[in-house]
Design a protein around this nucleic acid. Sequence first.
DNA 1: AAACATGGTTTCAAAAAGAAACCAGAAAAA
DNA 2: TTTTTCTGGTTTCTTTTTGAAACCATGTTT
Lengths: 125, 125
Amino acid sequence: MNIPVNPGDRYDVYCAACPTRMVLDRIADKWAMLILGRLARQPVRFNQLRREIDGVSQKVLSQTLKRLERDGLIARAVFATVPVTVEYSITPLGETLNDAVAALRTWAETHIETVLEAQRRYDKA
Amino acid sequence: MNIPVNPGDRYDVYCAACPTRMVLDRIADKWAMLILGRLARQPVRFNQLRREIDGVSQKVLSQTLKRLERDGLIARAVFATVPVTVEYSITPLGETLNDAVAALRTWAETHIETVLEAQRRYDKA
DNA sequence: AAACATGGTTTCAAAAAGAAACCAGAAAAA
DNA sequence: TTTTTCTGGTTTCTTTTTGAAACCATGTTT
C-alpha cells in the first residue's frame, strides 16, 4: 500500500493518490445520492429539487449539481422562458451509478430497524 | 414532502427527519466504505487498518470505527497482550451493507476513465 | 539511551457546511 | 400601486467537521 498510481498500475481506491479515490469521495455523499436518485425518475428544475431534497441548502445544492455535471453524471439545460427555466436530468453514465446507489438507499430503508436496535444496545452499555 | 416521520408513516430518505436519512448520512462516507471493505476480507487491528486505508488520520479512523460499531456494522475485540491488541471485524449486518458498498467501489474503478474524460471536457468549456 | 510498537485522545488550524441575506426581472396578488 | 412570489443562483457569516501533529502509558528492540 501507499504506492502512488503510475501509468501501468491498476486503479485502487485504497491508495490516496488514485483518481478512483477522488471519485469515491465525490459519490460517497448524501446529497449527491439523493439528487441522483431524484433525477433518475425524471428531469427536475432547481427550486423543485430544493423542495424535494428536504434539508439541503441552496449553496450545497448548487455546488453538488455543478460537480455532478462536471463528472458527466447529470446534464443541465437552460430554457429562455420568463423567468428562466433550468432543468437537470440524469445522463446514461449517471444511470449506471444510480443503480449502485439505489442499493445503498434501499439498504438504509430496509435495515434501519436493526441499526436503531444496535444503537440502543451500544448506548445502554 | 417535508412531512415529519410519525409512527405509521413509511420510511423515506428524502425526508430530513426520517431516521433512514441519518443512516444514509453515516454510510455515505468515504472512510466508512473503505473500512467496511477492508474488514469484509478479514479482521484487522487498528494500526494495520491505519496503514492500509491510505490517507486516513488516527482521529477520523477512531471516530468512524466507533460509529460503525455503534451501528452494529463492525465488532471490536480487545486482547490482553503486550502491547494490547484491538481487533476489528465485520458483523453479519455489516456484510449485507458491504455488498451494496462494493458496487460503489467497483463503479469508481470501472468508470473512472469516463469520469475523467467528462471533467476534461467540462473544464475546457 | 533512543527509537519503535501498541491504541488511542487532545489540541489547534484549515476546510467545509449550513443559515440567511441579497441579486435582477417579471408576474400575480393585495 | 405597492407588496409578495417566482425563477436560479451568489455572497457573507457562523458553526461544524476535518486533518495534522503532539501527547499519553507501557513495554520491547536496537
